[in-house]
Design a protein around this nucleic acid. Sequence first.
DNA 1: TATTAACTAGACTGGACAGTCCAGTTTGAT
DNA 2: ATCAAACTGGACTGTCCAGTCTAGTTAATA
Lengths: 223, 223
Amino acid sequence: MVNGASTRVRRSREKILAAAEQVFLHAGFLGANMDSIAEKAAVSKQTVYAHFQSKEVLFLEVIEAMTGGAARTIGENVEDRLDDRPVRDYLTAVAIDQLSVVMTPRLMQLRRMVIGETGRFPELGRSLYENGPLVSIRRVARALAHYMALGQIRDCDPFGAATQFNWMVMGAPTNAAMLLGDSAIPSRSELHAHAHEAVRIFLSAYAMPADAGAGPVVPPAAT
Amino acid sequence: MVNGASTRVRRSREKILAAAEQVFLHAGFLGANMDSIAEKAAVSKQTVYAHFQSKEVLFLEVIEAMTGGAARTIGENVEDRLDDRPVRDYLTAVAIDQLSVVMTPRLMQLRRMVIGETGRFPELGRSLYENGPLVSIRRVARALAHYMALGQIRDCDPFGAATQFNWMVMGAPTNAAMLLGDSAIPSRSELHAHAHEAVRIFLSAYAMPADAGAGPVVPPAAT
DNA sequence: TATTAACTAGACTGGACAGTCCAGTTTGAT
DNA sequence: ATCAAACTGGACTGTCCAGTCTAGTTAATA
């Protein structure tokens, strides 16, 4: 059977990718070393090179797999049934979903690495941007267009507004985490509070006046 | 004269620091190499080591100098005479100032490097955060407290509001530049438009109702 | 059971590079 | 002019590491 060998091959491949992910995330491209990847994968160095032509190829495959995986995760949680619920609820759900998926040590470290390696591998930065922020922004833009048609959102450029919304939600936490490390990653309750506050501000600027209801300045305590 | 020798020493030192800045920014800590720093500084390798004990020490001095320098630049431009002008003007000026200072290839590359080296040198991240975002946020927080006392801003936590403001202004451009490279740095006119839009949204949520005047949804064309 | 593709252990090559050493030269102060 | 500190250039050491080579072992298939 062709599949027997293929299974064995795939097992090795996956062990290597998992080990490489750990090592690269921890040490960066230059800091990582192929011997330690082989060791961590419990595989001979030769096998590593049988699967991946070079350190660079392995690195690229690891990173692309991670960015792709993250992109697939976002959006699985919030199905876009816009029609039946108010803008505020939809935006809040999207904000919480995005924050929950992205604000994890693993993805924050991926982001740090990609940013740090931008000089050597510019395509990784672009790929992360297009699989991450851009996807989210497009999704929100579609939703805003919908709510605009329903008269719940003021007339504006949906893409521009969605961009604003995206960074109101993600800006503070990601930037803090980039520079301050994983300890700056917000807790679940902080994350909820932040999401509500961002939605409140966004709607006070973009909701239809009738519907504007900026709500209390102090967000609902989410502790 | 003590100063003669000291001048010679300082000239070398400065040449080395300038060269090291270039090389480190371009290649990162591990990617940089001391021979090329010496060469670029037009100085012998020995002299480099006479001034800085090791690559690591040199690296730290370069980065600390850059972060400190940037911190000093911000705020030189906008003197904080709050009393006499409306919130909107003050916030707009601050936003444009910050964007102008921070959104340069050199500082964006510094930020990328520091983020990338966070694992090896966590203190650099903290230092950049405290010399950059935190300083700006504190400044805006002070101003907001002032305007709150004047009844132009709603009652709220000034620090929290200032944090929101900061990332509404800086979030989108920095994040894009981090991942997409210097070509994503906004032009002067984009930067102005973005600043106005951020202030508009912020004020529609935080200005006193009487004074709220969210203004038109479409920001004043800043082209 | 025989065959063969996948794998192992570990020695090895070649190049890069941090940091040192040394013997001589320049420069600025006195 | 003299002297010491700063500097030069380049050879050198030791280490690390990507990638290769070899000879032998394991395991899935037919």
